[in-house]
Amino acid sequence: MPSRAVPLVLLGPQRFTRTLGEAVRATGIAGPLALVTAGWQEREGEDEVLREHLAAAGCAAENLRLYERTEELFEADPELAAAHRERQERLRHLQELYRLRLAHLKAAVRELDLREGPPELLAPERRHALEAVRALDAHHLRRVRALRRATDEATGLRRRPALLRQAAGVRRALERAAGVAIAGGHVAVLLNRLRLFGGGRLLRGRPLFAWSAGAMVVAERVVLFHDHPPQQSGDAELLDAGLGLCHGILPLPHARRRLRLGDPRRVALFAERFAPAAALALDDGARLVVAEGGWRAGPGVFRLTPAGRVEPAGELP
């Protein structure tokens, strides 16, 4: 397997099974680590347990305070704050429109799946129905990107003094760090905050450890998923592009709790819909070391396959 000079490690959720310290040690990084806990929103600063865990592994940590910095930024630049609110409102609206169309397309996929008849007639229709879902996903992603780009350009985001000041503070903190640990939480908040301060450009080339929503945002696409919510049907949704720091992987934290992994048809549809990215279940204890063009997965990482199976992810290539 080609080795990656800068480690990128995706972990299972850390609340009950903390493996971050061990993962950091295994990469030979002495620290300190820059922490991103913006997904915890107003609890961003409540990172004592995480710090203690890292300290026990001999690693110091400094929180980048991206959530708090954003609040300060919006206070200092109300025009930017208003533009951000408006953009988020438009994104929410767009997501609703996408959800509406997705529900109909997914219903067709499900209905065709239950139909009986000559395979030579049914199979192409099923494939085409799934392609329609994939095409809608791609269309939605394009629209979300375009909407974001338009707002960034309209607000002159990268030239705003208040943002430049905060971003400089983030960069200085990163220069003191030997790597970055990105925790979970609210995935849209986390993604927005990271993107605001530079996104992929900010983190590329730095050793990264990410879990839960953190693992989701470093991938190429962010997919929201739950197979048995208390309301509605549980159709996975594309939210946005991720930071694109790892390729060909769709991380699925808490997959055992959130997905019906015992239902081969659902597993197959999920895997096919998001192919060629590998849908990888990252539950407690999971560790996935991402390498150029592949990965090395620990025993806790499972891959959802188009055949409807959930298999140990192993190594790729």
Partner: peptide, 14 residues
């Protein structure tokens, strides 16, 4: 309750 006061199920992955 999940209809009247829906939670952040789809958005939060801790």
């Amino acid at each position: 309750l999940s209809w009247l006061f829906p939670g952040p199920l789809w958005m939060v992955y801790e």
